[in-house]
């Protein structure tokens, strides 16, 4: 009996997740008329033109490229900087290293939008408002907490003997890191990079305040703007297509790496 109710609950849970996404997917292939007229029906003929409209007429195409550049740019700085710090903090303990690690951990706990006012002022004083580089640096800083924290866990598990052996082979401190330790931690680093990429791809509040102008806007800003313009234009199909363009890449990446991502999320949460 309990078993039956358990399975029923799972079924309802699964349906509640699938239906909204399926509805969005379905609507992205319908005409505006079909969307408002027969919301539950399948499209008579799939309208792939919605996608080209969203991509070219809306700003989805341009913001997609911006998001890609910002995400990749952030990862290119974040991963080396974060793994170097995580490595040193666990393998070269010194007075205060624990404190530094803990203050990175503390950053995991508060919603970063709370500090947006001083951050906005700081970025504008640096002359980096509305610039991709400004956004990238802010993203790196705000992703460091999670990255350093999780990567330090990976490095901690690698045996110290490896470091000593590489010294005997004539490696310097940094040589040992880049030639021995970093490659060994690569599976973990990859998951952390993917996890961060998803978060960066989705990020909205910081981008809203720090990168408003047309040539730096990221995809979430683009889709939010598209929502407003389509509300007047009434082109719902293109809007749903835009939503699909934002969410589909993330869903695919997540499905490929879901086991590792879940493990990393749990490691980050439960060690804290």
């Amino acid at each position: 009996m309990t078993r039956f109710f358990g399975q029923l609950l799972l079924l309802l849970f699964a349906i509640s997740i699938v239906i909204p996404f399926a509805w969005v997917l379905m609507s992205s292939l319908k005409t505006s008329h079909e969307i408002t007229g027969t919301p539950w029906a399948l499209p008579a003929v799939p309208h792939f033109s919605n996608f080209s409209q969203a991509w070219f007429d809306g700003e989805i195409g341009a913001t997609f490229t911006n998001s890609l550049l910002v995400t990749i740019g952030t990862l290119l700085i974040l991963i080396p900087v974060g793994s170097m710090a995580g490595y040193v903090l666990v393998k070269y303990p010194f007075k205060g290293s624990r404190l530094i690690l803990n203050s990175f951990m503390g950053g995991l706990m508060f919603p970063n939008f709370l500090v947006i006012i001083p951050l906005y002022l700081l970025v504008s004083k640096l002359g980096m408002l509305d610039s991709k580089m400004g956004l990238i640096l802010v993203y790196v800083a705000y992703s460091l907490a999670f990255t350093v924290f999780v990567l330090s866990g990976f490095f901690e598990q690698l045996p110290n003997e490896l470091i000593e052996a590489s010294f005997l082979d004539g490696c310097s401190h940094s040589g040992c890191f880049w030639k021995v330790m970093f490659p060994l931690a690569r599976p973990g680093v990859l998951v952390v990079a993917i996890f961060n990429a998803i978060g960066l791809w989705n990020e909205y509040p910081l981008a809203l305040v720090l990168a408003q102008s047309k040539n730096v806007r990221t995809l979430p800003i683009g889709i939010a703007n598209l929502t407003q313009t389509q509300q007047y234009a009434g082109n719902w199909g293109a809007l749903f297509a835009g939503i699909v363009i934002v969410m589909l890449p993330v869903m695919i990446v997540y499905l490929i790496f879901k086991d590792q991502i879940q493990k990393t999320m749990l490691a980050g949460a439960l060690k804290g």
Partner: peptide, 23 residues
């Protein structure tokens, strides 16, 4: 080595996360 490896992260984090928190 410790200083070189740690300072980029500590600088970025302190300057863009820690400082605004206090401000």
């Amino acid at each position: 080595f410790i200083f070189g490896f740690l300072s980029p992260a500590v600088f970025l984090y302190g300057f863009l996360v820690g400082l605004p928190l206090i401000q």
